[in-house]
Design a protein around this nucleic acid. Sequence first.
DNA 1: AAGCAAACCGACCGTCCGGTCTGTTAGGAA
DNA 2: TTCCTAACAGACCGGACGGTCGGTTTGCTT
Lengths: 200, 200
Amino acid sequence: MAQMTIDTPTRSEMTEARIIAAARRLFVTRNYADVTTGMITEEAGVTKGGLYHHFPSKERLYVTMMLRDLEGKRRMFSRAVEMEGTCRERLARITRDFLELPEEDRELTRLVRRDINIFTDPERDKLVRAYQRALPDLIERIVTDGIAHGELRPGNPRILSWSFVALVEVVIGEYAREALGDSDARLGHVLDLFFHGAAA
Amino acid sequence: MAQMTIDTPTRSEMTEARIIAAARRLFVTRNYADVTTGMITEEAGVTKGGLYHHFPSKERLYVTMMLRDLEGKRRMFSRAVEMEGTCRERLARITRDFLELPEEDRELTRLVRRDINIFTDPERDKLVRAYQRALPDLIERIVTDGIAHGELRPGNPRILSWSFVALVEVVIGEYAREALGDSDARLGHVLDLFFHGAAA
DNA sequence: AAGCAAACCGACCGTCCGGTCTGTTAGGAA
DNA sequence: TTCCTAACAGACCGGACGGTCGGTTTGCTT
């Protein structure tokens, strides 16, 4: 019973995974409202009946998919928080982890901020909290340590971590890759700008 | 004929303005798909017939509303570009102009980035270009001057201007107001972070 | 006052979409 | 093999939404 989750998945688990994977692919490229359940079932190779056997509604499917992804990201990014090293080294680690994610996984992070307003408060709150736990909270802990150790100027750690996330988001996308180069170059740019600013 | 636009507006122009104002109010708070034409007509005090007499579709209404707003912003922000002074002073001016805008006007700027993916390329391109002209292009010109005059380190001006916009967006919203204080404090925070970074 | 075009009304239509429901199939237990 | 439940199929429904269209009002011209 306890080990059932680690051996071969059941048929039910496999179709559920197929549905979630299809939903991920579609929600990344199109708006929530523009992704129909018909598109999801077609992409997943099931029918309406199959989908609604596993998920009670389109909204729950979306939320489940997102929460599962964010929990995975949280576990991954937590390694950078628990790592030894300077504030800059730890921020570099978490940013590199993020930049080297597959594009679909990166884009998914933007969905939370994009679609957060279309849900009402029981589900909305879950999504916000899961996102906070997965990324901003972790960065905030690194930033707080940085301030405590004198590496960063005193200031509001939450605002600083949001600022850092915002700077990272800038170097995602096609133009930044052309202008700055590979992951290392973009990573260096973000860190230099965040730590030392743009002044000469 | 040529001066007709500056004296008392016609009935047609007034209802058109009412419709656009209603659409603005609604689109800021709700998703594009979640704002129905019925809600717009109710808010504007007209009926479906009235709305579709002035606009051929919901999409065109949205685009017209947005383009009109962005053109106004472009004219306003252009004053900071044409102003004399250091790079920091000019960036301060444009940022202050932005921060002191009514909340609805500020939020509207975020709509472009939020809803840009739901339109297809003839209209989508118009929106992107109008937004570029209204804000990032102007900041890029200031940043380019700053690099030329030795105030900023050499670097890609477009990436830098996007970074600046991203930092400004962080200090919008309720939490930043509580944590940092009034417009002046938030403005100072953004400028300090952009010019000198967060390092001690 | 008559005429006329623009402005506006609001019932209506076609479509589409989330969700339901009845039925069928697979697959393990006995 | 038998049987029973979970898994899935797919036709169908209710409703909402964008857009239409024939008719009515408004206000300017002559």
